[in-house]
Computed example of a mutant assay.
Amino acid sequence: MERDGIFAGDDPFEIARQWLTEAEASEINDPNAVALATADADGLPNVRMVLLKEIAENGFVFYTNYGSAKGQELDANPQAAMVLHWKSLRRQIRLRGNVTREEGPKADAYYASRSLKSRLGAWASEQSRPLDSRATLMAEVAKVTARKGPNPPRPPFWGGFRIAPVEIEFWADGAFRLHDRFVWRRETDDESWNIQRLNP
């Protein structure tokens, strides 16, 4: 099967990293913005934009409040799907797989790399829960600032999620809607990928 140019290689994580690097040079805002789809315990789907923070050797990692709607949905049903779409490059990557929490030193390091206001905001926001006014939120930020000081630790309710894909599809726009699509599939992390070209 012919796979050259932007599709060349046998490691889909490396191809995804290369595409993201190219997008960083061409996308105006947030080239790492992704649509994340989850489902609750009853199977009702939900989708929202989040920022992808790492394409690791075996997963795609983002961070959030574990008590948020997405955090609760992933705890109840630890499977998710994600789409990275770059309009400037006319490319997208779709993936789906199993989800685990990204906690410990990696989460601590990422949290510490964020701006102080973002770190304090993570403590102050009860993400996804009702809020009566912005003034209430800002008052909570002030209280947290006074309590936690200039170097707050990572909250125990805040950290990462890693999607370990069982399927990754790379799509590139083609003339007359004759797009190029290749999908990598496997059932477990220790299996080899099965690679297949798909009809547009």
Rank of each mutant, 00 (worst) to 15 (best):
A41K: 15
S115C: 02
I28F: 01
L198V: 14
G9T: 04
L95C: 15
V166Q: 14
A135H: 00
E2T: 09
V166L: 05
F60M: 15
F157D: 11
L131G: 03
S88F: 06
V183W: 08
S26C: 02
W123R: 06
T136E: 15
Y111R: 01
E73I: 01
G149C: 10
S133Q: 07
G121P: 06
E102T: 14
G9C: 00
F7A: 10
N46F: 07
R90S: 14
P152A: 08
I163H: 11
P200S: 13
A146G: 01
G104E: 08
Q72A: 02
G97Y: 02
R91M: 02
N65K: 12
R147D: 13
F161I: 11
F157G: 04
P105A: 13
S88G: 09
M138C: 00
P200T: 11
L44R: 09
P12Q: 03
T136S: 11
W86T: 12
A80Y: 03
A23D: 07
A146V: 04
K53D: 03
L89C: 09
T100N: 14
N199C: 12
R119Y: 01
V166K: 07
G149T: 13
M138T: 07
A41R: 11
A112W: 05
Q127F: 02
P153K: 01
A23P: 02
Q72H: 06
L89D: 04
V50G: 01
P155W: 05
Q79E: 14
N194T: 15
T64H: 00
S26H: 10
E191N: 08
K117P: 01
S192D: 10
A124T: 04
